[in-house]
Measured scan of single mutants.
Amino acid sequence: GPMASDKRPRTAFTAEQLQRLKAEFQTNRYLTEQRRQSLAQELGLNESQIKIWFQNKRAK
């Protein structure tokens, strides 16, 4: 629909990254900035991508 703007492409996470994020989520529903930074480095992701993933996951 018209609401779907092309400005922010959805990140396609790899299965491996998703597995890691899910495991982290089961341990911590809320990430500290430090955890998020190390996860971002570990997974080669953007911190904001991880932050948003957690927000979306909590919203469900």
Rank of each mutant, 00 (worst) to 15 (best):
G1I: 04
G1F: 06
G1D: 15
P2Q: 15
M3P: 15
M3F: 02
M3K: 15
M3V: 15
A4I: 07
A4T: 05
A4H: 14
A4R: 04
A4C: 15
S5Q: 07
S5T: 13
S5I: 02
S5C: 15
S5Y: 01
S5E: 15
D6K: 04
D6W: 00
D6S: 05
D6Q: 04
D6T: 04
D6R: 03
K7Q: 14
K7R: 06
K7W: 08
R8S: 15
R8E: 15
R8N: 15
R8G: 15
P9T: 06
P9N: 07
P9K: 07
P9W: 04
P9L: 05
R10Q: 12
R10P: 14
R10F: 14
R10S: 14
T11P: 13
T11Y: 11
T11C: 14
T11R: 08
A12C: 13
A12T: 13
A12F: 12
F13T: 03
F13L: 09
F13W: 07
T14K: 04
T14N: 06
T14Y: 02
T14C: 03
A15V: 11
A15H: 12
A15M: 07
A15L: 08
A15R: 08
A15Q: 12
E16C: 07
Q17D: 03
L18A: 05
L18K: 06
Q19A: 14
Q19I: 11
Q19H: 08
Q19C: 09
Q19S: 10
Q19L: 12
R20S: 05
R20C: 05
R20I: 08
L21F: 02
L21S: 00
L21E: 00
L21G: 00
L21N: 00
K22R: 11
K22L: 14
A23T: 10
A23K: 09
E24T: 02
E24W: 02
E24V: 05
F25G: 01
F25N: 01
F25D: 01
F25E: 01
Q26R: 12
Q26I: 10
T27D: 12
T27S: 11
N28G: 06
N28W: 03
N28D: 10
N28A: 05
R29Y: 05
R29G: 07
R29L: 03
R29V: 05
R29M: 07
R29N: 14
R29P: 14
Y30D: 08
Y30F: 09
Y30K: 08
Y30M: 10
Y30N: 10
L31T: 03
L31M: 05
L31F: 03
L31N: 02
L31D: 13
T32R: 03
T32F: 02
E33Q: 13
E33K: 14
E33L: 08
Q34D: 13
Q34R: 06
Q34C: 08
R35L: 10
R35F: 05
R35T: 07
R35Q: 11
R35I: 05
R35C: 05
R36P: 02
R36Y: 11
Q37I: 10
Q37R: 12
S38W: 08
S38F: 08
S38P: 01
S38M: 10
S38H: 08
L39P: 00
L39T: 00
L39E: 00
L39A: 00
L39I: 06
L39D: 00
L39V: 03
A40I: 03
A40L: 01
A40T: 03
A40E: 03
A40M: 04
A40K: 02
A40F: 01
Q41P: 01
Q41K: 13
E42M: 05
E42F: 03
E42W: 03
L43P: 00
L43R: 00
L43E: 00
L43H: 01
L43F: 03
L43A: 01
G44R: 06
G44S: 07
G44C: 06
G44I: 03
L45P: 00
L45E: 01
L45T: 04
L45F: 02
L45R: 01
N46V: 07
N46L: 09
N46P: 14
E47T: 06
E47S: 06
E47Q: 06
E47K: 04
E47C: 04
S48P: 04
S48Y: 13
Q49L: 11
Q49W: 09
Q49K: 06
Q49A: 14
I50E: 00
K51R: 10
K51Q: 13
K51Y: 12
K51D: 13
K51G: 10
K51P: 01
I52E: 14
W53P: 00
F54C: 02
F54P: 01
F54A: 01
F54K: 00
F54Y: 05
Q55P: 02
Q55F: 08
Q55M: 11
Q55C: 11
Q55T: 07
Q55W: 09
N56T: 11
N56M: 11
K57D: 03
K57G: 06
K57A: 13
K57R: 10
K57L: 08
K57F: 08
R58S: 07
R58N: 10
R58H: 07
R58F: 06
R58A: 09
A59Y: 08
A59M: 11
A59P: 04
A59C: 11
K60Y: 04
K60I: 11
K60E: 14
K60R: 10
K60D: 10
